[in-house]
Computed example of a mutant assay.
Amino acid sequence: MKYKILTFLSLILIACSDDGYLRGQVEPSHDGKTYFGVIDNNGGNCGALLLDRKAWDLPLGEVAEIQPGEHIINCGAPISFFIPEGVIFKFDYWGP
């Protein structure tokens, strides 16, 4: 019984683990360059989606090369987030 509880708790920890990035899914890029895309547009409630005060016109899920570092995405209110170098960052979280 003790081992079943430990196994169950281990599975919960694994299921709840993430890559440590609140605003998106991050994975290493295949070529060492840095990429960004939006995979959730807040249910379409954004109107014009802005990244660093410029219109983000790419379709959901499509990525483009971007400079690593601090960026601001705007969907009614600005959200600041950090993109590390050499990754594909797919933005997916609009919450607090």
Results as ranks from 00 to 15, higher is better:
G20A: 01
A48L: 11
H71G: 07
Y35V: 05
Q67R: 15
F82P: 02
F36T: 02
K2R: 12
P84T: 12
A77I: 02
L13G: 12
V63M: 02
P59H: 05
E27M: 05
R23V: 03
A77R: 15
N74H: 06
D31I: 05
L50R: 05
P84C: 09
G43S: 07
K4L: 15
I83G: 06
E70C: 05
T7A: 13
I73N: 06
S80W: 04
Y3R: 10
E85A: 15
D31F: 00
N45E: 09
M1S: 10
S29Q: 04
G20H: 03
G86R: 08
N74T: 15
Y35N: 07
D92G: 13
S10I: 09
P84M: 08
P96F: 14
G86V: 07
I79R: 08
K54S: 14
G61I: 05
F36K: 07
G44P: 04
F82G: 04
S29V: 02
Q25W: 00
L13Q: 10
Y93A: 06
G43V: 10
L6C: 11
L9F: 10
L49D: 01
C46V: 12
D52S: 11
M1L: 11
P28Y: 14
D92V: 13
H71L: 09
L13Y: 09
V87Q: 10
C75Q: 03
K90A: 06
L13A: 15
A15N: 08
S10M: 09
H71E: 11
G44T: 11
T34N: 10
L22P: 00
F81R: 10
L60H: 03
P28L: 14
N41E: 08
L60Q: 08
P59D: 08
M1C: 04
V38A: 06
R53N: 12
I72P: 01
P68Y: 10
